[in-house]
Design a binder for these strands. Structure first.
Lengths: 124, 124
DNA sequence: AATATGTATGAGAATATTACTATATTACAT
DNA sequence: ATGTAATATAGTAATATTCTCATACATATT
């Protein structure tokens, strides 16, 4: 991780912290990126592995990984010609867990989506 | 773009659940909406109260509340001529807490942003 | 050096979100 | 009924994201 050139040490404008938080949530706000993270919580994976698991084209996977990387959600490490991605903070897994519980509460008990949620929880 | 209302009972396509999760995170992905939620975790507030606390124009507040409402993040209850908004699920507070801890880990210990975080945690 | 493989980035149109302003809508009081 | 305060929505230009391909880059192998 390289140091940002010219970091400023200055007072924070009101709401600036919320801008960062919003950017972070925005990084999660995409179906493909959610799927990527749900795989990565179980451990690091190369782009190729992710690509196979999701059945998506390589540029799609790399592009979405880039979004996560730029927001510092995941880290990338070269392994020869491959690149292994991993969560930068395991708390992201906790975050997804809380989100899942919120869905659990939110969805009506008879919907197909809820059944899907239960299936997902069981797989854990 | 209008949101179709009317829940369907049918098999779930792969990744459809992730679409819902992404929409949920997208609802949080805006500085104003973060600020609104950070107030609402402490209890219900009317639009007017939120407007005053944030120092924003009324349409701005209502518009962002509408986004949260459409995603089921907050509920709205009429009180005479006012409308009181509240979190629909207290777990949203837990979600913001986890997010804050992630930021705490992520930011360098000497940055102004981190000091802001500490201040926030103390208040919270 | 030439090639193959895994990964990253670029450019374009298509789409979605935002900010801003004006106007509706609703409930209450006179 | 008219007025008023609180809230919601509509219209729209500006901006940002996403999707789809094509291509560039880096590393290892021959």
């Amino acid at each position: 991780m390289r140091a940002k050139r010219g970091r400023r040490e200055r007072p924070i404008a009101a709401g600036e912290l919320q801008v960062f938080k919003a950017q972070f949530f925005r990084a999660l706000a995409h179906p493909t990126r959610i799927r990527l993270l749900e795989i990565l919580v179980r451990g690091g994976r190369t782009v190729q592995e992710l690509q196979e698991k999701l059945g998506l084209d390589q540029p799609v996977v790399s592009q979405q990984l880039a979004v996560l990387r730029h927001q510092g959600v995941v880290s990338a490490q070269k392994e020869g010609v491959s690149v292994r991605y991993a969560l930068r903070d395991p708390l992201v897994g906790a975050l997804l867990d809380v989100a899942r519980r919120i869905f659990d509460n939110r969805l009506g008990t008879s919907t197909g989506l809820l059944r899907e949620l239960r299936r997902e929880r069981r797989r854990g």
